[in-house]
Amino acid sequence: MSNIDVAMKTSAVVTSAVQCLAAERSNESSPHYAAHVEYSDELLALAARDLVRSIDALPPSERPIGWDDE
């Protein structure tokens, strides 16, 4: 993995977070509201998982400070 991959995954997390906010603020009376919100939440979780995997794949010297702290 590269820093470019991490940057792309970070962008995906931010995009998914914005989509979650938009879904939560959409029309609650829609019959698809709950499914839309759940789907958006799942996309955010998957994007975050992919970001963590990309960072974990970096050499330790390129990971964010404190990443490996427990």
Rank of each mutant, 00 (worst) to 15 (best):
Y33T: 02
L21I: 15
G66D: 02
A47E: 00
K9L: 07
A23K: 00
Y39I: 05
D68G: 00
T10H: 14
S11T: 12
A34L: 10
S61V: 09
S40K: 01
A23R: 01
A34C: 06
A12W: 00
C20H: 00
D56S: 14
D56P: 04
H36K: 10
E42K: 12
P59F: 06
A34Q: 11
Y33K: 00
R25T: 11
V18E: 10
A48L: 08
G66Q: 02
D5C: 07
S40Y: 00
S29L: 13
A17K: 08
V37S: 00
H36C: 06
M8T: 15
D56V: 07
Y39Q: 14
D69I: 03
E62W: 07
P59M: 10
L21P: 07
S30E: 13
V37N: 00
A7S: 13
P59D: 08
V14N: 10
A47V: 01
A34V: 13
S40M: 02
A23T: 02
R63T: 03
H32D: 14
A22L: 10
S61F: 12
S29K: 15
S2Y: 11
R63G: 04
Y39G: 04
E24M: 15
S26Y: 03
E38P: 04
L21A: 14
A47T: 03
A48N: 05
W67F: 06
M1P: 05
D69Y: 05
P64Q: 06
E38I: 07
L58W: 00
A23V: 02
A35N: 14
L21M: 11
S11D: 11
Q19V: 09
I4P: 03
A57N: 13
D68W: 04
D50A: 12
V18M: 11
V18G: 08
D56Q: 06
E62P: 02
A7G: 10
V13L: 07
E42Q: 15
Q19N: 13
Y39D: 11
P64G: 02
E24K: 14
A35Q: 15
A48C: 13
D50M: 13
S54P: 01
A45V: 12
D68M: 03
I55Y: 01
E42Y: 09
V13F: 04
D68C: 03
S2V: 07
A17S: 14
L43C: 14
D41G: 14
V13R: 05
S30W: 06
V14H: 12
P59E: 07
D69E: 10
R25H: 12
D68P: 00
L21K: 12
V18A: 15
E38N: 06
P60L: 02
Q19C: 11
L46D: 14
D41Y: 08
M1V: 08
L51I: 08
I65P: 05
A7L: 14
L46T: 10
E38K: 13
S26H: 05
A57S: 09
E28Y: 05
L58F: 06
V6A: 03
G66M: 03
S26R: 05
D5L: 12
L58I: 02
G66E: 04
D56F: 05
S54N: 01
V6H: 01
E70Y: 02
P60R: 05
A48T: 09
P31L: 09
A22N: 12
N27L: 06
E38S: 07
E24Q: 11
